[in-house]
């Protein structure tokens, strides 16, 4: 491994520490926000936005997705599509129900 590579990594180390700090702060924030009397919808939205943000920090930096290879982006995009399908189509099928609405 060349010197420049070693140098690269030591630069990354700073970003790891920053990410860690951000994750810790966001954890506190999400707990704090949850103590407000939001409606269920709003609470879900806020909590999921924060979680998604935290999750993307982990994925982007700790799992270094920010500088990954094309094949992996394709794979994850494909997975993301099927993930969304898996989450929403069964729900859609349940909500668009004949006869007894909301009874699964």
């Amino acid at each position: 491994m060349s010197d420049s590579h070693t140098h690269d990594v030591s630069k990354h180390v700073r970003s790891y520490v920053l990410v860690f700090a951000a994750l810790a702060v966001l954890t506190i924030v999400t707990v704090w926000v949850a103590s407000f009397e939001f409606t269920v919808g709003a609470a879900v939205a806020v909590a999921l936005i924060i979680a998604t943000f935290k999750g993307s920090l982990v994925a982007s930096f700790f799992m270094h997705l920010v500088s990954e290879k094309k094949a992996i982006y394709w794979l994850l995009a494909l997975t993301a599509i099927f993930f969304v399908v898996l989450i929403f189509l069964p729900l859609g099928a349940m909500l668009d129900h004949q006869g007894t609405p909301n009874v699964p």
């Binding site: 189509l89 099928a93 668009d96 129900h97 004949q98 006869g99």
Partner: peptide, 16 residues
Amino acid sequence: IVWAHHMFLTGMGTSI
């Protein structure tokens, strides 16, 4: 994205 063609008789609505 075709799986529920096995479930037409479960009372799924027309849109799904």
